[in-house]
């Protein structure tokens, strides 16, 4: 099936298998490999992307369901060679270790800030409740988000 995808502001017409998940299309067809597969069941959040303004697990959405809608991936955060404030804050606060959860984590945080520019700690925790991290204990991730917010 031929479908149109709007990814990071660019339109792509792609031939997509009906069974293909959004994650597969992003990774295999568009070579946007920032979103990772950690569990394939929407439990770890490594594949988180933003669809029509909200964070979703791209491993449990069929590509066909995302056709025509606005998709943002981790690759969209850097603008004109400048990192997003969240990305900078992650680097500056030691919020990145193995990095496998990082793209999904950042997209959950980005979706939060798009809706709520001044979240509380509880709101940050809720935003990343579906993003598992085995390296950091979340502490530095939460700290990074707070710092990114503070800069606004």
């Amino acid at each position: 099936m031929e479908m149109e995808f709007n990814v990071n502001g660019i339109k792509h017409i792609l031939e997509v298998d009906p069974m293909e998940r959004l994650l597969d299309v992003l990774r295999n067809k568009l070579k946007l490999t920032g979103a990772k597969e950690g569990c394939g069941e929407g439990e770890c959040g490594a594949c988180t992307i933003i669809l029509d303004g909200v964070a979703i697990n791209s491993c449990i959405v069929l590509a066909a369901q995302a056709a025509g809608r606005e998709i943002l991936t981790i690759e969209s955060l850097e603008k004109d060679g400048e990192l997003d404030r969240l990305q900078k804050a992650f680097i500056n606060n030691g919020a990145v270790q193995c990095g496998y959860c990082t793209p999904g984590m950042l997209m959950s945080c980005k979706a939060l800030l798009m809706k709520n520019p001044a979240p509380t700690e509880e709101e940050i925790k809720t935003a990343i409740e579906g993003n598992l991290c085995r390296c950091t204990g979340y502490t530095k991730i939460i700290k990074a988000v707070k710092e990114a917010v503070k800069d606004i």
């Binding site: 929407g42 979703i56 449990i60 809720t126 935003a127 579906g130």
Partner: peptide, 9 residues
């Protein structure tokens, strides 16, 4: 129900 991502979908 579930996580933020799940509830969004």
């Amino acid at each position: 129900v579930g996580s933020t991502q799940i509830r969004n979908a």
